[in-house]
Structure formats: C-alpha cells, structure tokens
C-alpha cells in the first residue's frame, strides 16, 4: 500500500465510523422518550451523515477513480467497511444508546481535537468543523449518563448494565495498526494510545459522579478495522444500500 492508499484508508475509516453511527442514531426517529430528545438524536444523526459525506468526498478525490461520495456509502460490502464494532451495535434501550454515544463522543473529542492540526489540510478542515458538533454530543450524552446513573434505581441499573455491556467494545477505539503508524509519522493522524489515558480518566470521573462502577478490565473485542464485523453490519447495509443496489443505473 503506498502512502496515498494509506491516507485513503485512514479517511475511509473516519467516514465509515461517522456513517454507521449516523445510521444507528437515525433509527431513533419517532422512538425517543420525549420529543426534544427525538430532535436531539436525529440532529446528531444529521451531524454524522454530514461528516461522512465530507470524508467520502475527500476519499473520492484521493482514490481518483471517478467515484463520488455515495459510492463509498452505498456500493461497498460488509468486508470493505472499517468502522469500529461499537458504532454498529443495535440501539437497544435509551441508556444503551447514551452509553455507546458517550463512549464514542469522548473518544471523538480527543481524536478530532488532534486532527484539527493534521498536516493534511482537508482532514484538518473537516475536523475543525466536526469538533463543534462533537463537543455538543459529548455534553449532551454526559448529562444523560449522569441523569440516568444518579436518577432512579431502575435508570441506575440500566445505565450500569449499558456501561458494562459496551465496555468490551471500547478497546478497539485505541488500537494502532500499520496505517495508524504511518499516519502518525506523516503528522496526518494521531496516536490513539496517547488519547486512551485521557479518555479513561474522563470516563472514570464521570462514572464516579454518576454513582456508577467502572467495569473491570476484560477481553476487548476487535475486528472492525480489518473489516471483520458483527452480524449486525450486514443488515445495516442491506437496509441502507437497498435502492442503490436494486436500481444501479438510477440517480436520486
């Protein structure tokens, strides 16, 4: 893989994470506990889809094969996607969605903060646009972790269970492979291990404040970066890509 190819992969990973997260959040439409929250969740979905669009537009340019942004979202298959497993897990209940989104937003906060000064101008520009949204997602989800953790006994139980259930999917966020090393060397990407300690410190602080336990370290799931996904991803793609696949000649 040459450098151009590696940058392409790096950008696609960022794009895939945004797209799949956005897809899951969009599923909350008309299902949230209150109307205000319905609007917040679909608004976050919109932020993510917008980010994916920008990243895929850049990917199309890097790839230079005449594809557009929709190609990357709609015409690639399960094994091509490189998003983290955490983004593709089902929404389940409100506490589950909030726990997952909080873990992700906190990770994205540190990631995109550093990407704002990436040597790749396009990535830096996208990061600067995204960081504002991410800060808002982080504040919103953190508030819900606190509310639910320190709300009623039922909400506490559900939030603790959500934290425990998703914990094994957080390790993957901080994995480093050859592409990450190369991007770090070029000053384009970041060292995910450097942000892990920051992430963990904030997680512990918030869980503590929310009267929640920090889960014990256990086996961490892995695979997303290599296109080895959960069974859920295939259904997401079947749903999302159906029109583009069924009518390949159509423009929408």
């Amino acid at each position: 893989m040459d450098t151009q190819q590696q940058i392409l992969h790096y950008v696609l990973r960022l794009g895939d994470n945004a797209l799949i997260s956005g897809h899951r959040l969009g599923e909350w439409c008309s299902n949230a506990p209150i109307l205000e929250e319905d609007l917040a969740l679909t608004n976050f979905a919109l932020d993510y889809i917008g980010r994916a669009e920008n990243l895929y537009q850049y990917a199309a340019k890097l790839e230079n094969k005449g594809h557009d942004e929709d190609f990357f979202a709609y015409r690639r298959s399960e094994r091509d996607f490189q998003n983290h497993l955490l983004t593709e897990l089902p929404n389940n209940n409100f506490a589950d969605t909030m726990a997952r989104l909080w873990f992700l937003s906190l990770y994205e906060f540190y990631l995109y903060n550093e990407l704002c000064s990436s040597h790749d101008e396009t990535i830096a520009a996208i990061a600067q646009k995204s960081i504002k949204e991410i800060k808002y997602h982080l504040r919103h989800t953190k508030e819900w972790v606190l509310r639910l953790g320190d709300g009623t006994s039922e909400s506490h139980y559900k939030m603790q269970k959500a934290i425990n259930d998703y914990w094994m999917y957080t390790g993957e966020l901080f994995e480093m492979d050859t592409i990450d090393h190369e991007m770090l060397n070029l000053g384009i990407g970041i060292n995910p291990q450097n942000i892990y300690s920051l992430w963990l410190k904030d997680v512990k602080e918030t869980l503590n404040e929310a009267q929640l336990q920090v889960p014990e370290d256990s086996y961490m799931q892995t695979g997303g970066k290599n296109g080895i996904h959960t069974e859920y991803l295939g259904f997401i793609l079947a749903d999302m890509q159906y029109l583009q696949r069924a009518y390949p000649d159509a423009k929408w």
Binding site: N31, P33, F94, L146, R147, T152, E154, S155
Partner: peptide
C-alpha cells in the same frame, strides 16, 4: 418505553 427515562430525569 420512555417513561423510566422521564422519571429518572425528574428524580435527578
């Protein structure tokens, strides 16, 4: 399904 969430928000 959202009732427990609304209750938790009030309790908090």
């Amino acid at each position: 399904e959202g009732e427990w969430v609304r209750k938790a928000a009030i309790a908090y």
